[in-house]
Design a protein around this nucleic acid. Structure first.
Lengths: 211, 211
DNA sequence: AAAGGTCTGGGCTGTCAAGCCCAGTTTGCG
DNA sequence: CGCAAACTGGGCTTGACAGCCCAGACCTTT
């Protein structure tokens, strides 16, 4: 069923995808048109049409690409599978370290909010990606419980939903306020709440970093 | 400077605004066009053009209208100025009581995410509204501190940013998952975190409602 | 009654974008 | 070599939409 693609074809398709993802992330889906995509990826209109016959197919591919990226990032060794509070703090630190990190929002979340009300059939794609995302947090919290770093009465599912919600909501507030503080407050607040379930410290005595 | 509007003119303008807000909330800005607006409000194209010369002016008015609505709602007696945990729990209960409440997202937040990347000049309008929104929470938490219901070392600004972020992010996750649970988890989780700063209870012994 | 705001219902134009087609060229695999 | 994919650089149609204009009717206040 997959139309035979040579190595070169895959490379071009991938180049289009990368630039499309970047453009759409920066300017939004509706403000990105074919001409911009052609120029950014350095391909002709025919090629764009060849690899992505419709805009919906391109957007779908971009969603999959961004989802894979964000999931791979969260699964990287950097956060040690979120098996400790330090892992979560490292994560929060990454997203609050640079001004640039919040100005275009979450690479997947902003895309989701923009098209969730349209008739594009992207629901399954998105739902699957966000499920996996929360699962990364949940699995980390479960592991923390196994290691005795988190109380047994903590609810990893609930906490993972709070963590991701705080990130998504914090990103939105930061974009609107053009200030990283709301994102910091949301992330470190959520993580401090997780800390209240740790046995090693009282949780109320040790607080997260900034200000 | 305001073009003289008689009572009738104001009524028509208001009717257009109401229907525009409803349509845009349900279908998004880009998927709402003049013809739908005309039919929904029962006015002719000339009138639409008369009261809102450009789409940007209409969107701006809708933002202001939705902002006023959501702020008035949060200031209503129902939540007793958020001067207690019960006020916050009542708030969370409202947004998680019905399936319908999350399916179109936050009336202001979804609008914000959709247009934050466009070149529409709506930044000040949005920033002001969200500032007031967090202030409602912050003022409530400050009042709780004054009343001795919240520890002095709690940071009302930080907590209010977490609360609103949890709501916005939870709304997005709920929309994507087509399930109210992520929103519930985010809201009640954030509120339980606030509870860890209350002196009356340990905070760890009493948890919020669902499941 | 006069005036000015309100309102209809249609038409018109310019613009922009998506999708599609094609003639011809280049590349690379078998 | 031969063939198929990759690729160029256009052009073309179609549709959608925002913005704009108008002739005339209606309503309300002065």
């Amino acid at each position: 069923m997959p139309p035979k693609l040579t190595g070169r074809g895959q490379a071009t398709r991938g180049r289009i995808l990368e630039h499309a993802a970047e453009l759409i992330y920066a300017k939004g889906v509706h403000a990105t048109n074919n001409e911009q995509l052609r120029r950014a990826a350095g391909v002709s209109g025919s090629q764009l049409n060849h690899y992505f016959p419709t805009k919906e197919s391109l957007v779908l591919a971009v969603i999959a690409w961004q989802a894979e990226r964000v999931l791979a990032f969260h699964r990287s060794a950097r956060f040690t599978s979120f098996d400790s509070l330090d892992g979560f703090r490292e994560w929060a630190k990454y997203y609050t370290a640079y001004e640039r990190s919040y100005q275009d929002g979450c690479s997947l979340g902003s895309l989701a909010s923009e098209i969730i009300k349209t008739d594009l059939d992207v629901h399954e794609e998105l739902a699957g990606a966000f499920d996996q995302w929360t699962d990364i947090f949940r699995d980390g919290l479960l592991q923390m419980q196994r290691l005795g770093r988190l109380d047994a009465d903590a609810d990893p599912t609930r906490l993972s939903n709070l963590l991701l919600s705080a990130y998504q909501g914090g990103m939105l507030l930061a974009q609107i306020a053009r200030d990283v503080v709301p994102l910091e407050d949301a992330l470190y607040g959520a993580i401090d709440y997780v800390q209240t379930f740790t046995t090693s410290t009282s949780g109320r005595d040790v607080r997260s970093a900034p200000v």
